[in-house]
Write a protein that binds this DNA or RNA. Structure first.
Lengths: 335, 335
DNA sequence: AAAGCATGAGAAACCGTTTTCCCAATGGGC
DNA sequence: GCCCATTGGGAAAACGGTTTCTCATGCTTT
């Protein structure tokens, strides 16, 4: 009895049970080779009854495809990364591809450890993602023998990268303020050193210019990504004359601070001032008073597309290199 | 030249370059077998120069150990799960173990798909984690041929599970209020249907009883896990006479609502009322005014320990079954 | 000088699949 | 009745390692 094996049942067991060779069994199960329909059906039935599942390791060894990819991230907090990761996982499992989670802090040694482990385990490709679009991971992936896709992050110039279309999102936000009849707009955002700040600021200026206005530097306030900065910005704006009637915030936390500060000043939102955020961080956006109108970066979809792009690369299909910008969506709530 | 192979270099290449058999090469690299120290050193040097890295797939096929585990989660939002995941990843990479990320929504089919994929890929074990401690995943893991560890979640009675010690954390929180001289305490928490609510409430009552008080039902307010509920609770409490001077909140969002409402009422925190939260969700806790004193569940450490427990199980060591409670830490800030 | 023994290294089996031949039997065409 | 094509199925190599034997060599022992 081969059933004394403690291990899982193999194709040998199936072959034996069906009284055929393992070659025939393999061919029956993979719908290749030539044999009578009866034989094929019988082998399949036996395999089914035994609950046979082929060992992916053995298969990969031969095919040089592990149907496994690595996901490298330096984001342990995960507000942005987790939706991306979920999207990747979702988009790939349909292709039978599994995802190795590699949480590297900002530690180069840890990163190398993970990359080596992945290569040893023969991953077909790697997706790199991180906390910050413009800050590279502490490891160079550009000379690896497998394809790389950057998600929510840009890599070398000729690499495939997917990021949200910050400009379009910001434009939509500003245009929404225009639609509400707001004309005295300001942009309260994060540190100027961030790429996304640059992008959103650029779009802010652009949208104003398109509307026939000449944006001034005083309309753009950079600070921290925090509620506190949002509150401070309101103090500053309302301490000078002619405060704005529309505020586009660089993220939802700032917007939260802005809204709280306005509330404390008895400035009505959205009656006197309209506020738009960025990120659609629901747990914040839904709990502001009023609920925050904000820009959603569709991160899950971004993850899904990153997964698909990587699969195409692995399959040897050509994917246009460079940075692809995925559309953002304005989520209109009460502010 | 065998270097015309597009693939990575194998032990065959090393053996050829060192003019030995692959058996000898293998033994040299694994520090097994017998050979002269010179031979061993030479083979190692050659391997080093060639940048040889053994194919983990081939190795696993033989050893029946893939050094890979699965991580099943139904949490796509990730406030709690992500630190756990990071801890798991960190704790396992040191053992050479990689982690498959499996994001199953609450979808049984998706869950099954992932579990099957993992089994096919010969994972050594699975860690199950999720959004809610008392809500099982939509898939039964109890009859799998590999060990399972539940993290931030409980499984079947005889399963190995790790959860935070909610009672101890809550007790510490209440005792902190006592230390601050507060005596009129209330507990504002989430829906009574949650296990954690039950635990924390129990500890709240217990701590009061230990201090010689007789807790009344009026001191326990259950509602939603939201800022809004925190604000409502304050309205309710301050509309009746003799409002509390210490509030222990079931999570940080509620605490945030409570603090905001008190602020709007011009009730001083921490002068008139002390507030303690739960979760140490830093992005919230650090931005309240004043910063929130709250309970940290040490989730990363929990993840690390879950990883270690699984490794022990995989190694055949015995791990005491049942639910282990890991200590929480009170993080004292300004409230 | 014969026997015994430690040493160093290689041959081959094995893990679980897939795939490329190859072969025996059958049947049809002439 | 002979030849050839087709059909159904199997043997064996391959993937990249590890491990168990086996064996030749040279040294020590009596």
């Amino acid at each position: 009895m081969s059933s004394t094996n403690v291990g899982r049942i193999t194709i040998h067991d199936v072959a034996a049970a069906a009284s055929v060779s393992i070659a025939t069994a393999s061919k029956a199960l993979n719908d290749t080779g030539r044999m009578s329909v009866e034989t094929r059906a019988r082998i399949r039935r036996v395999a089914q009854e035994l609950g046979f599942r082929p060992n992916a390791l053995a298969r990969s060894l031969l095919s040089k495809r592990s149907f496994t990819v690595g996901l490298l991230t330096n984001d342990t907090y995960g507000r942005f990364t987790l939706p991306v990761m979920a999207g990747i996982s979702e988009g790939l499992i349909d292709h039978g591809v599994s995802v190795f989670l590699c949480a590297i802090e900002d530690n180069p040694d840890l990163a190398k450890l993970h990359v080596d482990a992945m290569l040893d385990k023969q991953v077909d490709g790697i997706i790199a993602t991180g906390r910050r679009i413009d800050k590279p991971l502490p490891v160079d992936l550009s000379h690896l023998p497998i394809p790389i896709v950057y998600a929510l992050m840009t890599g070398p110039a000729d690499a495939v990268a997917l990021v949200p279309d910050d400009r379009q999102g910001a434009r939509d936000a500003v245009n929404h303020l225009f639609d509400k009849g707001r004309r005295r707009l300001v942009h309260v955002t994060g540190p100027a050193s961030f790429k996304v700040v640059e992008e959103r600021t650029h779009a802010f200026r652009d949208a104003l210019a398109t509307a026939g206005m000449t944006p001034s530097e005083a309309q753009i306030l950079t600070g921290a990504w925090s509620e506190q900065w949002g509150r401070e910005a309101v103090e500053k704006l309302w301490s000078q004359e002619n405060p704005p009637d529309g505020i586009f915030c660089g993220n939802d936390q700032i917007a939260r601070g802005v809204i709280d500060a306005l509330r404390e000043k008895d400035v009505g939102v959205p009656n006197d001032v309209s506020v738009v955020g960025f990120d659609n961080w629901e747990i914040v956006a839904e709990q502001t008073r009023p609920p925050l109108t904000t820009v959603d970066m569709n991160l899950k979809e971004l993850g899904r597309q990153a997964g698909r792009a990587l699969v195409r690369l692995v399959n040897g299909e050509i994917v246009e290199p460079g940075v692809s910008k995925l559309p953002c969506t304005l989520v209109i709530r009460g502010s």
